[in-house]
Design a protein around this nucleic acid. Sequence first.
DNA 1: GTTCCTGCAAAAGTTTTGCAAAAAT
DNA 2: ATTTTTGCAAAACTTTTGCAGGAAC
Lengths: 158, 158
Amino acid sequence: METNLFREHERNSADFLKEILNKEGFRLTSQRQKILELFNAEGGEHHLCAEEIHQKLAEQGEKISVSTVYRALHVMVNLGLLQELELAEERKYYELRSPVLHQHHHLVCVHCGEVNEFEDAIITQVSGHETQERGFSLLNSQFTVYGICPRCQGRYIN
Amino acid sequence: METNLFREHERNSADFLKEILNKEGFRLTSQRQKILELFNAEGGEHHLCAEEIHQKLAEQGEKISVSTVYRALHVMVNLGLLQELELAEERKYYELRSPVLHQHHHLVCVHCGEVNEFEDAIITQVSGHETQERGFSLLNSQFTVYGICPRCQGRYIN
DNA sequence: GTTCCTGCAAAAGTTTTGCAAAAAT
DNA sequence: ATTTTTGCAAAACTTTTGCAGGAAC
């Protein structure tokens, strides 16, 4: 069961991205491709912030400026490829966008920052119910649970 | 049915605040009192950011610096009096903290920024379930639904 | 060829911090 | 009297923007 828009087209990821971009008058650039590849790399980080993206690409020898990263992230959010997350931190994180029905949510340890993901169809139902009741259209939802993970419970919590 | 920690002690709100502060080695100051009074004022804004707090207090003739507002907000979050919200905006918002069982959540119009609140016990149940399953202790949770409100649906969405 | 995109550096906006004076305990 | 808190100004950090050169269409 695939849960992200991008992986479904992995074989021709560049073509797929180009199509999506061009449809809206944007252009395919190597920088945008590299950023999306980073998100798509399996086993890697799921949640990335602009600075992390910039640094990881720099480590791979890619030349890309921070402002380009920010601009690319905005474009991809607007195209529906990425979703912006508000975790416990001061900066914004991004992840590949899941279709609403397979959306996952986050359980964050406020002590060590560990992030767990989970899915729950009820959350989607509640989103649909609340939006319908007020005549809103539903775009997406974000559910974040904060707690202290088992490892950190043993330590003194400041 | 009271839903916030502060209102329960409204008659002696200053004493109540002082007690909470002193218990942790903090001191009661007029600035901290004024900030909490602002949140507690009924019919007022529920969600306030640092700059709004600073401005509203200035309008009332209170002298308080922005840095004091930030410092007071941090103290009150740590004491459990306020909760930090990550709405759709670039800055952080705060509201009086509700006991977990009566927590409310937010429905945000991404176009005009209108914020609706709602309660749903199922959200609390899911929070409890997910934390227990992974051995986390539950601190709180935040559920935000993004959509477009009825008024904005008629307009062109950029 | 035209339009969009990038990189750079500078700017903007929010939040934090160092320090001396003031206030709370 | 001691310790915390405040206000101010400066700094730190994330994010945005203007502009000229370069790349994609």
